[in-house]
Design a protein around this nucleic acid. Sequence first.
DNA 1: CTTGGAAAGTCAACAAGGCTGACATAAACT
DNA 2: AGTTTATGTCAGCCTTGTTGACTTTCCAAG
Lengths: 170, 170
Amino acid sequence: MADRGGSGAITRGDTLLFLTDDQLRRGIEAMFFAYRGFTADPDRILTEKGYGRAHHRAVHFINRTPGTTVNNLLSILGVTKQSLNRVLRTLVDDGLVEARVGIRDKRERHLHLTEEGKALEQALSEAQRNRMRAAFRNAGPEAVQGFRAVLEEMMDPEMRRQYLDGVEQG
Amino acid sequence: MADRGGSGAITRGDTLLFLTDDQLRRGIEAMFFAYRGFTADPDRILTEKGYGRAHHRAVHFINRTPGTTVNNLLSILGVTKQSLNRVLRTLVDDGLVEARVGIRDKRERHLHLTEEGKALEQALSEAQRNRMRAAFRNAGPEAVQGFRAVLEEMMDPEMRRQYLDGVEQG
DNA sequence: CTTGGAAAGTCAACAAGGCTGACATAAACT
DNA sequence: AGTTTATGTCAGCCTTGTTGACTTTCCAAG
């Protein structure tokens, strides 16, 4: 019963032992449990302030790419414009986000964080970075490289492009 | 350019370059984009069959630990019993899950997948494993070790225990 | 100059899946 | 006998996703 049908896992010898169904299941559960930890800290702050994860995501990417358009944000976040608009409207109403009418193309809205918006973004990302930093430090630089390599491979191609777009050319 | 060689330490002088805010932000975005890919394939199957991610999670952990109790599942999933109950009820009604009254403690319900339930679980986990396998294979065994090390460090302690409980002793 | 279509916004309706609170029941424990 | 535990259930609320229909603005091609 070593080799389960269709899995392609080779359990003979020691080749590709890391690709057994059980190893893959561990990877799946690692993603599940880790994602919970990943969102736990910002979620606490968000709940305090009456926002949700959708607001966090919007604020994050507006901060990453100031002046981005609504359409741009839409394709990054992968939600409908109605869904994003609801979130964006509360952020604009609350004075965290400014939607500037485009100069060249006046249909477009260019999104920027206000000072208050930047403050929230800072609080959220600091909480998230703290956990990520501790995890990175405890795991070590080689593990971090592996972590990123696997995650990058797990993305859909379009998302990988979005991800790589956000990498600074240092 | 930073040193990315096999020696491991990505450092410049005293600074741990892999812990800069920008590196941490990349890690955060990697988690965000990768999680999307991670759930994309099962989501497609679930939508077809009229279920959601909550059903997937329940089915996954019932399959992992057959005979687990409702309370047990509750603490693994981290949701309220009302929320889980709604999901569980549909699964039982649809004949995917069987809730057997406990022998020693008749208050408990021990959860098992029916054949139909196992079939769904297989379809879902196969889709997810396929992506995970491709990612693991492309990244290589060392990257997989790093991936798991970082994710484990990112979990809340209680979740880490749940995660490690699911590791087979073989 | 007209018009097609893209970008953005809005309204309505709906669903999944979280949550709280209250309450019911049976079984186990003390 | 009384309390605690495990589970289930009803009702209601929130966030965040969806679809569909429609309007306004405005760039750009004909």
